[in-house]
Design a binder for these strands. Sequence first.
DNA 1: CTGAAAGCGCTAACAA
DNA 2: TTGTTAGCGCTTTCAG
Lengths: 321, 321
Amino acid sequence: LDPARAGRVADATAARVARSAAELGYVPDRIARSLRTRRSGMVGVVVPDLANPVVGPIVRGIESVLWGAGLACVLVDTDNDAGREADAVAGQRDRGCDGLILASVTRHSPVPVALMAAGVPAVLVTRGTDEPTLPLVSSDDATGVTALVGHLAALGHRRIAYLAGPPDVSTTVTRLGAFRAACERAGLDPGELPVRSCAAYTVAAAEPVAADLLSSQPEITAVVAGNDMIAVGCLAAMERMSLRCPEDLSLVGFNDMPLVGRLKPGLTTVSIPQREIGAAAASLLLDRLAGRSFTTAAVLLPTSLVVRASTSAPRPGALAP
Amino acid sequence: LDPARAGRVADATAARVARSAAELGYVPDRIARSLRTRRSGMVGVVVPDLANPVVGPIVRGIESVLWGAGLACVLVDTDNDAGREADAVAGQRDRGCDGLILASVTRHSPVPVALMAAGVPAVLVTRGTDEPTLPLVSSDDATGVTALVGHLAALGHRRIAYLAGPPDVSTTVTRLGAFRAACERAGLDPGELPVRSCAAYTVAAAEPVAADLLSSQPEITAVVAGNDMIAVGCLAAMERMSLRCPEDLSLVGFNDMPLVGRLKPGLTTVSIPQREIGAAAASLLLDRLAGRSFTTAAVLLPTSLVVRASTSAPRPGALAP
DNA sequence: CTGAAAGCGCTAACAA
DNA sequence: TTGTTAGCGCTTTCAG
């Protein structure tokens, strides 16, 4: 029955066996097979929060590749609690998962180093650790932010603020770093550009921070938000302060989440290939599991700038000292 | 080591065994255990599309209950392809899943009957079949729609149209049925109220249908959409036709998806307890798996009307013949 | 090239 | 109350 050794067996016998199997309704028992081969055919996927609209499509990409390879996708949600990550991974390992895909990692998480040390096949998605550990598949956030800053600079903005996400996730530092570098390249002094940090990538966390930023730094003409949710929080703050977007202030986000293009004004942002990111991560893990050659470095998938109505040239006079 | 028979064993022996186990780093092998007990400790979860913002939170609710019970959540996405459902379920069964949760079911899907016949513990979520089969956990859509129609009727609307979703999913018929019943109770003739069907619960599918409805039935003063995405599609059509919301037309959706409250105007809709729905479905399955008593009928969780700016009284004169 | 047998690690039934 | 044993269904090795 083993297709791998067709040919090494007399055709007649093979046919006879196959027919009997079909007649008897024989279906191999995967669990018994797992016990014998020490392979479960399962991959553990750990996500920080499935309710987050960027996570769903990524998992969908992962699952679709795993399914295609005959592997099961075992999902655990850490509820954005970094402490639950180790438990989640332990649970997956205990279940005998052949490999792991982690979308939940924080910058200083001990889990990836432990997995490396234990030789467990694993891949990171979206978020990485400060010290390079496991291979990471993500969007090319730096290039995306650079495009956003370039867009704003081309419109004439020079007083640009940044609303960052929580400092413990790598995307926050990557995007902020790219923001500063891009501003510098545009001839601005990054040290002079206001930067504020939001406790979470949520509207609720961002709104008060944005309100504080806008009232204390009225001279800024544009805001780059760490992601779309933070941008929406900023929009909410502006509304309360009767600031118009983009007339009084241009605003950009990141991720192109559902419906942000239908807000008033439609949000200028960067769209990322979520599904492909998940698919690439799964493929990378499959290569590793199959013993094929595979990237050990980061894989960054291209983003694209989506210009909508939340950005325009600063109003005349705003740039005067 | 078995906690179930503590007490039936001398304490000294139990302690000795436990200590040795700890010293040797003994960890029971779940796969071997599964082979012996014929229980995998896994539950298969089949979803139609993880990228859909209502699905993520439901799965999160499911996973959180399963994790709490020590069970794994094995996820498959059918990509909204009804044909893949049977394959997905077969895959899960083949893997030895102890139970199944199906969020992907269409009205005439043969899968639930087959599962019932095979005696497989399984539960439906969100969507059910026409013929009652497996227990269903869902939001109480009928009551939600009734609240929406009541809200519109109280504002004075009498020419109300319905933009339905695809006819093959149960939520479409449930909501449409509730719409008709509620209109009738409000003293309107359901036969005279325009109803149009969209091929999918998406903005893209809804927009042309809405445009056609609005141009052919200019006398309507309010639209009830099958869900928020269809409502957004209607909003897009209105924008292109220079119809104002709510001045020219009131609009309501369903589900309270992320950001619909931040559109202009904020969408009046019905919010559903997504996470609780998932959690309830998982609990129901756990009861079944544990041989406890469990509901075999539908479980409908309460919704709540969220009134925002997309609804107002019809403009004066709109109701004249 | 084919058939037989051992054993993966566990649990449940049984004997002591 | 404790220790022993058979066997879950498969794969792999070894003898025929």
